[in-house]
Nucleic acid binder design. Structure first.
Lengths: 202, 202, 202, 202
DNA sequence: GATGAATGAGTCTTCATTCAT
DNA sequence: AATGAATGAAGACTCATTCAT
């Protein structure tokens, strides 16, 4: 008699493995058999839980996005002041630790693939929207408390998160000109510029 | 008597076709035979000029980057004031016309693939560096003429170009929350914030 | 519950088919798909058990050699007198029956290919050495019993087996001057010359 | 106006190159373009002189055989005694110098290919027959002069040349058990056994 | 639930051959 | 006489997918 949770457990195990393989080898080179090996199951088992390779990868993309948001949900609920929380956001996205780097690499694959996959575009719209709202709400908090200068909080959020995305790619490409340190400094400089006393001034 | 430039001509023709196919179908689905069809030559001809599919795609990435820089070189030499030139930069990168969209899609493939291809990383370093320097030099001009506020011009440049990259991706993913219009407005808002009078609001 | 020996069984089946195809068409014209057809399996199955065409053919060479030795092992243990056993050896190598002709043709392919394949050279060294030792031991027996004249048994063996190889090739090439009958007669004449009464002696 | 001898000259040059390539890479791996490179001409030129790859290789086989016989014709006309001439024969076939090794390797390819090419079988019949007759005539001379014992000279010749062929293969396969020295010693031992002093006959 | 043997469609790649110049 | 650009048929190899056990 099968445990009711076997399926969820097994799927989780397979999706985690899929993310690892995508991060390591990219989508182009991903073979179902590699995922199977990584997950420690047989190739047949993968297809027992996922109808096709496409389904598998799409599910992995969703899994990656969801886990990523989850891992940052605490920032929203943090009692710290908005600036600190924005800095948490930045820190949490710096591609320094294994986990974050893997997540970035999976996003890279998702975006590349999403260019011609409506399903993935919807996924991005949904998940990325959550993420944008999270940042915007922090900014709005800052404006409410008078720490952050006036302006469209969504626009500020878009500037910050798109900046993070753009620089993260360069870091992942091992650019000599864009190291993690410089990425962090640049993001922090942007956030500092949001303060009331703000811009440059000096 | 051999044609003087059959090779250069043919390679160009093939690389242009390769970029089109990458833009349309992505790297994952690119078939050498599709490139051949697009270029109007036989499959054998592709391999006559390029040793492997990998070589072909890498050459196409370089071709795409080079053409992109070339198409924007005029901005550097423009007699217009720095702010106008920054706006030209932004305009030239908005994914509106076919040509620019195609270029963005090829970059997307390059970046996704570059995560594990040192050759592509070097290519990105070289070409993207040129691009960063181009923007930074415009900003430096603006600072010299007193129109742009003080600050590290390279950092400003990095903010702008990474922002462009990040938002362009969302636009290409057909995000409802990030249209071309919003991308343009956001970039322009950032550039406006660079002015001496600056402090945004206030 | 997996069949205990599907793999061994299938490999055997494929190797037998490979030998047949090599014998019929030679290595130059061997197509993996021909082997598949001959073995009654799909092309994919061949690659499921052998990494490459090269691996397949090498394994077939080994298989052919091993089977050949096995088929003659009884001569070594035969209770008959040395001369009879040498005649058995000769008989067993005459390219008359289908099985022996096939084996010769595979050896021909092996030797041609072995000229530049260290792996095949090692294989030949190992297997051919067994074969040489088998013949030499018969000759040694004959010398011990006084039927065969003095002399280096290995040298005698080398003369006999190299003679067999050289003539077999001519027979296989359908030489009018070297028929199976003449080959047999010539080999027997050589063996007869090994008798005590005979040559060398002084 | 083309030199009348250009064709013969060019063909010779190409055939020599073909033999070199066959010797180096074998027939399986021979590419027409390799022959072209080796001959210092273009690929098109090969087909200007030879209708197909098959024709080219067959012509090369003939060329190799003819050159080989020519190089040994002097032994037939030598004023030396039959035993010396047999020793010359043996020496001339030991795979020691580059030229002889190359010739052997081409023969190996010819024989492997000849198993299913009637044209090559005829070629072998013709050329190998010359070679057999050459050796037999030396033996006949020896019998006439009383130096070589009675017996069918063609059978003696077949023993010797097949022995040479068989051992040469083992030498070419770099057998540890069959070195050039041992090959030479074994052949000489066989020839010594042909002397009158040495019984056989009865 | 899970396996892994087997499949065969899909592609890259090779290379003999052709032919305009 | 000679070239080398171009072709396209051929074939090795990959791998998602199926299914009997």
């Amino acid at each position: 008699m099968p445990r009711p949770s076997v399926e969820a457990e097994r799927k989780d195990q397979i999706l985690r493995a899929t993310c690892q393989v995508i991060a390591e080898q990219g989508y182009v080179n991903l073979r179902v058999s590699d995922v199977a090996k990584q997950a420690g199951v047989s190739g047949g088992t993968i297809h027992y839980y996922f109808d096709s390779k496409r389904d598998l990868v799409h599910a992995a993309f969703e899994y990656n996005f969801a886990r990523s948001l989850e891992r940052r949900r605490w920032i929203l609920d943090s009692p710290d002041d908005p600036f600190s929380r924005l800095r948490f956001v930045i820190d949490s996205y710096l591609p320094v630790d294994e986990e974050t780097i893997e997540a970035w690499r999976v996003w890279a694959a998702l975006w590349a693939e999403g260019l011609r996959e409506p399903n993935l575009q919807e996924l991005n719209e949904r998940m990325y929207g959550d993420w944008r709202r999270l940042v915007a709400s922090i900014i709005r908090d800052g404006q409410d408390s008078g720490q952050i200068r006036a302006g469209d909080p969504v626009q500020f959020a878009n500037m910050l998160i798109s900046m993070i995305d753009g620089m993260a790619f360069q870091v992942l490409l091992h650019s000599q000109n864009m190291t993690v340190q410089r990425m962090k400094a640049t993001c922090l400089a942007y956030v500092d510029g949001l303060s009331q006393a703000s811009p440059s001034s000096k």
